[in-house]
Simulated scan of single mutants.
Amino acid sequence: MEPVLLAVTEIVSLLPPSRVQSIADRIRVSTPEVAGRTLHQLVSTPAARAALDDLVSSWKTSAISGEHLSGLLIGASHLRRHTLREGNVELVWTGPQTPFVPTRRTEQVLLDLINRAKTDIFLVSFVAFDFPTVVDALNAAISRSVDVKVLLESSASHGGSLSVDPVATMRKHVPVAALFAWTDRAAPFADGKVHAKVAVADGEIAFLTSANLTGHAMEKNMEAGVVIDGGKVPQDLRAHLEALIATKVIRKL
């Protein structure tokens, strides 16, 4: 049975669900001998033809029926499609590149997240200054009625730890955004900081990064992160940030 399962896995990894369905439909009413002569008509690449040959060969030495094998193909295809919807995770890197591992830069990913947003964006950063491309993207999002929320570390004069005031900077450049601060840092979080750097759009795409909202972080620093497109993590991140507002851990300014 294991060779059949391996062959099924290879097929569904190479072909779209509609093509897997066509193969499954033909196998259901066929035999290994007949399928071996006809299935190649349904694919167009050498890799897919080789995978089909492996499937037919393993089917011949197994005791399963065409109907059983057809069900395995359809089930595996549905599982793969569901798994892909659960979320794609991609490495994000700013700084020195190599020709061996292709990555997208922090600025590219953040702008893509903002530009894709349809209903809401929540950004969290320690500091924010010298980030014109992000400013333009946020204001463009607001112009298409996207709700933009931003949580930042406060200046020392407002209960935070910074000598600069990122809240004032953000208010100046993105005046319509809803700004938030961590104002009540009771034990065990006394002297804590808003040190997270995350972004989430629509509960569908999340970006977790070492990069602040600064020009150096976008262009010059060595920064690393991951972008998660789809699945439960973006939903949970948005829900957690909104819960911090609802429970008054963070407050609108």
Rank of each mutant, 00 (worst) to 15 (best):
M1V: 14
V8E: 12
T9N: 11
T9W: 08
E10Q: 07
I11H: 06
S13I: 05
L14E: 07
Q21F: 10
I23G: 05
A24F: 04
A24N: 09
D25C: 09
D25V: 13
G36C: 08
R37I: 13
T38F: 09
L39K: 01
L39G: 09
L39M: 05
L42R: 00
P46D: 02
A47H: 00
A48H: 02
R49V: 07
A51I: 03
L52P: 03
D54Q: 15
D54T: 02
D54C: 12
S57Y: 02
S57V: 13
S58D: 09
S58G: 12
S58E: 10
T61H: 14
T61C: 11
T61Y: 15
L69I: 12
L69E: 11
G71M: 11
L73I: 10
R80M: 00
R80E: 01
N88V: 03
E90I: 05
E90D: 00
W93C: 01
W93Q: 09
T94Q: 13
F100G: 00
V101H: 06
R105I: 03
T106M: 05
Q108Y: 07
L113Y: 08
L113H: 08
I114E: 15
N115M: 10
R116L: 14
R116S: 14
A117G: 06
T119G: 14
L123D: 09
L123T: 08
F126H: 08
F126Y: 06
A128E: 05
A128G: 10
A128T: 05
V135K: 02
D136W: 07
L138E: 04
A140P: 14
A140F: 15
I142G: 14
V146W: 15
V146Y: 15
D147M: 07
V150S: 10
L151A: 13
L151M: 12
L152E: 10
S154K: 03
S155Y: 11
H158Y: 14
G159T: 08
G160P: 13
L162M: 10
S163C: 00
V164W: 02
D165W: 03
A168D: 12
T169A: 07
V176Q: 11
A177F: 11
A178Y: 08
D184M: 14
R185H: 00
A187P: 09
A190M: 15
D191E: 04
G192Y: 07
K193W: 01
K197E: 06
A199V: 07
V200M: 02
V200Y: 04
V200N: 00
E204Y: 00
E204R: 11
I205W: 00
A206N: 07
L208G: 05
T209F: 13
A211F: 13
A211Y: 04
L213F: 01
L213A: 12
G215P: 08
M218R: 02
M218S: 06
M218K: 01
E219F: 14
E219P: 00
M222Q: 04
M222D: 13
E223C: 05
V227D: 07
I228D: 03
G231H: 02
G231E: 01
K232P: 01
K232N: 02
P234K: 00
P234H: 03
L237F: 06
R238V: 06
R238T: 00
R238P: 00
A239L: 06
H240S: 01
H240I: 01
L241Y: 06
I245D: 06
A246I: 04
K248S: 15
V249G: 13
K252W: 03
